[in-house]
């Protein structure tokens, strides 16, 4: 009997920590082109946090980030070479790359996407690309 109570309590706890529907901050980008496959948590990039410190122009014009979640094919090799996140996360403008868990903080299995976007919130979500 005590055993069933224990199981009950445990599953109650599990239910509370299970990933519920995502309510992430608007504009958070999950990057998971390679992370899962390499056994790392996916990367979560917070737009709100960076736009308080930098205008869009710094990343999207000067540093060449394309407007496409996952579209820049960022890798650790490029980062330690000073590209993309590595242009700032180098121990000079911001904390350095050895703080793996600061960037790799996502729930494993989360696909690459930008959270809370209008497309995802439509009643009939559509991901078809129409070509510009």
């Amino acid at each position: 009997m005590y055993k069933s109570a224990l199981i009950g309590l445990l599953s109650m706890l599990a239910a509370m920590v299970l990933p519920q529907a995502a309510h992430a901050e608007y504009g958070d980008v999950v990057m998971n082109n390679y992370s899962d496959a390499a056994g790392m948590r996916p990367v979560v990039f917070p737009h709100w946090y960076h736009r308080i410190r930098f205008r869009c122009k710094v990343c999207h014009a000067d540093l060449g980030f394309k407007f496409k979640a996952g579209g820049n094919k960022i890798t650790m090799a490029k980062i330690i070479d000073g590209q993309f996140c590595g242009a700032c996360h180098n121990g000079e403008i911001s904390w350095s790359v050895e703080n793996c868990g600061m960037c790799h903080s996502g729930i494993s299995g989360t696909p690459t996407h930008i959270d809370g976007s209008t497309v995802q919130r439509l009643v009939a979500p559509t991901y078809k690309k129409l070509g510009n």
Partner: peptide
């Protein structure tokens, strides 16, 4: 928020 891992 459902996308960050609380175990990290």
């Amino acid at each position: 928020d459902g996308i960050h891992d609380p175990d990290n």
